[in-house]
Simulated assay, not measured.
Amino acid sequence: MNIYSGIWPVAPTPFHPNGAVDYEGMERVLDCIIDQGSDGICILANFSEQFLITDEERRLLTERSLAHVARRVPTIVTISHYATQIAVGRANHAKAHGAEMVMMMPPYHGALMRGTAEQTYDQFARVGEVGLPIMVQDAPLSGVDLPVPLLVRMAREIEMVKLFKIECPQAASKIRALIAEGGDAIEGPFDGEEAITLMADLDGGATGAMTSAMIPDQIKLVLAHHASGDRDAAQAAYARVLPSINFENRQCGFRSAKAVMVEGGVIGSEFCRHPISPLHPDTRAQLLELVRPLQPIALNWGR
């Protein structure tokens, strides 16, 4: 089995109702993700609300999360920042506390400050000097174009660039082209965006998926059947979970995993910091209506 394979959920960051980070709740989230049979964990990603967390909170979350996971599964720490020096500093901090990998988007700030191809290459090369495998996050949020030739060049010339989370439009086609042009240099092509295009991405050559922590135990069945060559079983497993994935992707975003984890007793609050609004009660009810029949571990973990 490729070590860069399977399902690697993004851990949500729980907050107390007063807005303070719930560090004990974070440890319960991590335990739940491991109990869901996940092959790895990602912390401090966009679905962790990393853009709503202070630098000091980030430091503590990194240190406490890595200490608590204690290498039970590999952990990826997201380190994205426009400033290369800060991204490198975050990578060094993650490595010092036991992270197995880091994930980063290309350099960007707001809608207009976007790294060029060379600036992106240089930033990843600098982070690569830290010595941790890097997952390139190709997400629309950055607004930075990452064409296949650039990604292949990075994979071939920067030793630590090994993984690629592709969640741009028509991701399957890009994954297929990336593998065709990059060959063995593309060690871990991953699906993203809550697995809303998972079957197409697996057919395109993805070896893993980085989803939310809402129902990874149920989505994992799709990857397992696909990897074994049982396409009919993979299609059936995917059809079973797709309505809830679609609802999460289109209606809830990162608030979905928190809602399910509160309902399942994993954490005590689904608070999101302003300016993020809480889920509308009707939206929350519709989400749970779709998730309950799946009987995911997160919905019952703390009960």
Rank of each mutant, 00 (worst) to 15 (best):
F15K: 00
P17T: 10
P17Y: 07
A20S: 14
D22L: 09
Y23D: 01
E27H: 14
L30V: 09
I34K: 00
D35W: 05
I43H: 11
E49H: 13
F51L: 15
E56T: 12
L60H: 13
S65K: 09
L66W: 02
V69W: 01
R71F: 07
P74A: 07
G89D: 08
A94V: 10
K95I: 04
Y121M: 09
F124G: 00
V127R: 01
V127D: 00
G128C: 04
E129M: 04
P133W: 03
D145Q: 15
P147Q: 04
P149L: 08
L151M: 15
L151S: 04
M154P: 04
K165N: 12
A177M: 13
A180V: 05
E181Q: 14
G183H: 07
D184Q: 13
A195S: 15
A195L: 05
T197C: 14
S212N: 04
P216D: 06
D217K: 00
Q218N: 12
S228Q: 13
F247I: 08
F247N: 05
F247E: 04
K258T: 01
K258F: 02
G264V: 02
H274E: 15
L279W: 06
P281S: 12
P281K: 13
D282K: 15
A285S: 15
L299Q: 01
N300V: 13
